[in-house]
């Protein structure tokens, strides 16, 4: 007793973190959730490369010569990262990729929020009817980033096919 508390009755955050980071079931749930999001996000883009390329073009961040390469590759990295996170093969590398992708989505959305350009997200579908409120998209991405950072530091080794 007392390991989780420090003098004054405050909760010891390190200890709480150790509990969370050590929890196999929490890690597994988050892995399935995050992995499913990445897989789901990739399907529509893989099926409609030309439309997704147009959305990438509209972000005005990728040089025009590289737009198609980027639009072809990104959804496949999302798909592979999602699958690898769930089944637990090269999970740490997949989590690193996922974190970097979410971080770059946040940066890309923020730049266009500051520019005042109303862009189509292209997050989960290539439809222009999908939500384009950048603030709510940013909140969603920050939530996802928190989850990927949790996985990054999670110490759970269970439920993985290959470490």
């Amino acid at each position: 007793m007392g390991a989780g508390k420090i003098a004054g009755g405050k909760i010891d955050h390190m200890s709480l973190w150790n509990k969370l980071a050590g929890s196999d079931y929490l890690a597994l749930s988050v892995r399935i959730f995050v992995g499913a999001i990445f897989i789901y996000a990739s399907i529509d883009k893989i099926s409609n490369p030309a439309q997704f390329a147009r959305i990438v073009y509209n972000y005005h961040l990728v040089p025009t010569e590289l737009i198609n390469l980027f639009a072809l590759l990104l959804p496949w990295i999302e798909l592979m990262a999602g699958i690898f996170i769930i089944i637990g093969i090269y999970k740490d590398g997949a989590v690193l990729l996922a974190s970097l992708m979410v971080l770059s989505f946040i940066i890309a959305l923020s730049i266009n929020l500051l520019r005042g350009i109303n862009i189509e997200c292209g997050c989960f579908s290539v439809s222009s009817k999908a939500t384009s409120n950048i603030i709510s998209l940013l909140i969603r991405d920050v939530g996802l980033l928190v989850l990927t950072i949790y996985l990054y530091f999670s110490k759970s080794k269970r439920f993985s096919l290959l470490e």
Partner: peptide, 18 residues
């Protein structure tokens, strides 16, 4: 190791997408 794994996943993605 993480970076190596990430590169490996990226290479698979490149191969599949291309």
């Amino acid at each position: 190791l993480r970076i190596k794994q990430a590169l490996f996943i990226t290479l698979i993605s490149i191969a599949l997408s291309f």
